[in-house]
Design a binder for these strands. Structure first.
Lengths: 207, 207, 207, 207
DNA sequence: GATGAATGAGTTTTCATTCAT
DNA sequence: GATGAATGAAAACTCATTCAT
């Protein structure tokens, strides 16, 4: 509702901000935080350097804003995926599919995102990540609730703690996405979510 | 064999090199590649800056050497773990245990290692990682062979491609190690490797 | 006369100008020329930056106008003090009193004023001060005339050239004002002008 | 003694430092702190900018060192002048002469020095001056002791507090030096110190 | 006429790397 | 062979000024 009430001026500002963030995203994913200069970002975005500093108080602020915005979008999409089914198994299927499509659509950000959630955020002094990490943590707990509910309702066996299962599933998805990222042709992200889920669902052991 | 033939001079050189790498490792893990200067490394290692450049042609070379050396140690230990049993399940147990102990003993490097294998190596221009990645890839194939053999020998069900299973197992271990890294107390890495392996071994589904 | 003929428009303009100068004065005395930005001045004066530039063609012009205006007020008050008595000694008493009260009432400007008349006007490129200095020089000559007249009328001994005496008296007043500026409590500016004048009037030597 | 024990390396360093300070002094006195860039100083001193930063941790540090060094030299010379006579009047004569010669020999610094002791040190954030001011204050007290002793020994009349007399004498000297600074030809600093001292010594009044 | 968004030259500072001693 | 002083390119950031609305 209120989003519509933006004045032309405000809409213009928002558009500029998006252009700056887009340019920064491109450059950061290409070269990494420390190998991109503010001048480069300004140039790519086709703004003067001073204008960049009108929108973001410094380089770190720009980076933070970028990461936070993307993380928000991802978590929103994934959380929504978990809500769009009643059946726990279906929720997980939705999640695996959503994770794939969201990430594949946003390939350039993935590396940045991983650098901040898991992996080493050496890009930036410190403390930046805490907010992102926390958000990620919260999502893992939401995912764990699906496993917990499935176990309570006797649909799943309790082969591990729900949180551990959430971590396991998420990390497997990430791993597949990395394979895809590095070589999309020989390692496509599975269309059928069950290919991933079966790693958890079907026991490996023949007994 | 030939390793033993090092002259005193050569042994001394090697020792110096190790000291430099150790100092660099400490600093890089504390502050990240871009927040560490060559001067700092030289000072911590108690060598002159010029001497550092006698051993490594530039900062990137130093970093690469460091990461490569550590990655070698890790992969050696993990590969050895896979060889120290005949039974496939036992191999995997060894692997999960070895991964845990090696990483936990080398906590400071883990972040750097992850940044380079999985995750985003933005630290360095580009191309650095290719060698490390390749080495990692090779290891995953070795791990995959264990699954393949287990499947061929009908000990494991083929719930996914062996390579995918390798990726899945490794990523779950990584995920558990991250949890431990962030909060060792509430997320200890399981003593019993079956806790991790069961996620693959026991199917989740009740049917 | 012609001052009264200002149209409402003109009076309004003058008021705005005064507000801008007042804001600038506050900021310059607080932080010094180079540590104050035009934006800051505009903000404090509650005008848009563009409006500021309608009134003053650049930062230096604003500063010059400010200093000139204040210097005018000071010199006017001091010149008037010299005129308000017939007796030379009384003139000097008036001057010492006026200098004290004018400066103390305008404490914030004093430092700026000193920086420009005596002391180092490093604030601004160069040449700014010439006008101010000249005005100050003119005043010193006016003050020297009082000494000259006193000497001619045999009221004063000619212990030095009139101009030198003027310089001496003025510098002693300044010195006392500095003492007061730095620590008003332990160094009050003397109520009784003779305390300062006696330094010239009574010879120090016992003979 | 120990000054002689400087190694060639140390002497070389000291010489470089002096060259840098000399270049900085020239530029600061020509254009003022804020109108001089570190690049300019480096260029004038014929060093690379990085070398400048090896000697001074930042621009402010360079400025402080410069001012402090000069202030030290001045105060040393003036204090020594006060010690080189037993008779109070002779001490003051020495002081007036020393002040003249020291300042005239160091004309370029005078403005900077005044800016920091009396006058408006807006050049630098804050706190810089406190040290210089304190040193100046100490000197004034030393000068006041001469007046005090002269008064106690009945050589001087107590026409004002000793500290006030010190302030007065110093400010008169400063004023004469300013006249000289602005126009050396028409306002030479008096060869004969009594010309200045008589302003205090001989009473102005004919009675 | 007033506004304030946009500009970009210019500033301080860091640090990888070289090379004379 | 080791040293560390010297280098200078390049980075982040500021702010006086302009000009389209």
């Amino acid at each position: 509702m209120k989003d519509k009430k933006l004045s032309r001026r405000e809409r213009e500002k928002l558009r500029q901000r998006q252009e700056m963030l887009a340019a920064a995203l491109e450059l950061f994913s290409e070269k990494g935080y420390h190998n991109v200069s503010m001048h480069e970002i300004a140039e790519r975005a086709e703004f003067a350097i001073g204008t960049l500093y009108k929108f973001f108080k410094n380089k770190e602020d720009l980076y933070k804003s970028l990461i936070k915005e993307q993380a928000d979008r991802f978590h929103e999409a994934l959380t929504k995926a978990l809500e769009e089914a009643d059946d726990e198994r279906e929720k997980l299927r939705n999640y695996v599919k959503a994770k794939g499509s969201v990430f594949i659509e946003n390939a350039p950000v993935i590396r940045l995102y991983f650098a901040e959630t898991r992996g080493a955020s050496f890009n930036i002094k410190a403390g930046l990540d805490s907010e992102i990490r926390e958000r990620y943590e919260r999502f893992l707990h939401t995912l764990a609730l699906v496993f917990e509910s499935g176990i309570k309702r006797k649909r799943f066996q309790k082969i591990a703690e729900p949180y551990q299962l959430a971590v396991a599933l998420d990390s497997i998805c990430n791993a597949f996405l990395f394979l895809w990222l590095e070589d999309p042709k020989s390692h496509p992200y599975p269309e059928d979510p069950d290919i991933i889920l079966n790693i958890l669902f079907k026991g490996l052991l023949n007994d």
